[in-house]
């Protein structure tokens, strides 16, 4: 499983793997927002936390179809399915690799981009914490969506239609943590709910994803 993790990360980092594209996309979204709503610091500071969450969510969505599509095309997914490692483990590892190459860089970049959006001081810590706790759930849910649509020719648009509604609870609790952090309120409740959501998704969704892949490989 460790070998699979390393392989997936190497593939993502090397040329054509799309590593960095998600980050660049995140940066572009953040750059475009002031053009759309105006450059006033008060306005930007007000919406910064929400914009960063939406940006992270969309950037995460962009790279989802890569989780399984390439392996499905060249047949390595069939090999993985017949390997001694259980398919549930494979999907979990692939979600982890996706998080390490997409989610984690987004978490690290978010505070820097928050400066551009004039996020008020106390918000930085809680924005980063909320993204760090929430993005693993985005990767696992996305992994499930990618597993559902892996056999389709043009699954990209369908993938977003299926995955985005599933992101609603994560987005609500994540953005709520960041917003309360900005206002200096207690963040315990939404943070605990967000953590519970992530833990539940990480524990259960690899099974659903593996079931979907088995159906697609039939």
């Amino acid at each position: 499983m460790r070998a699979l993790l390393l392989r997936d990360m190497r593939l993502a980092v090397r040329a054509g793997g799309g590593f960095g594209l998600a980050l660049a996309f995140f940066l572009i979204v953040v750059t475009l927002v002031p053009f759309a709503v105006g450059p006033q610091p008060e306005v930007l500071g007000e919406i910064a936390a929400g914009v960063l969450w939406i940006g992270a969510l969309l950037a995460c969505l962009l790279s989802l179809d890569r989780i399984f599509a390439l392996d499905y095309e060249d047949g390595s997914l069939d090999l993985l399915a017949t390997a001694p490692v259980p398919l549930e483990g494979v999907t979990a590892v692939k979600a982890l690799a996706h998080w390490l190459t997409t989610g984690l860089p987004l978490v690290l970049a978010a505070p820097v981009l928050a400066v551009l959006l004039h996020l008020p001081g106390p918000g930085f810590l809680w924005l980063t914490v909320s993204l760090a706790v929430g993005t693993p759930a985005l990767s696992v849910i996305g992994c499930f969506g990618a597993a559902l649509t892996v056999g389709l020719k043009r699954g990209g648009l369908l993938l977003s239609l299926i995955v985005l509604p599933l992101y609603v609870p994560v987005l609500i609790f994540g953005a709520e943590v960041a917003r309360r952090g900005v206002d200096g309120l207690a963040v315990g409740t939404p943070l605990a709910l967000l953590g519970g959501l992530t833990a539940g998704a990480v524990a259960l969704l690899p099974f659903a994803a593996a079931a979907a892949i088995r159906i697609n490989l039939r």
Binding site: V168, P169, I172, E176
Partner: peptide, 10 residues
């Protein structure tokens, strides 16, 4: 169902 309760919270 999760969304339903998340939205209530929100």
């Amino acid at each position: 169902i999760l969304s339903r309760y998340a939205v209530n919270f929100w």
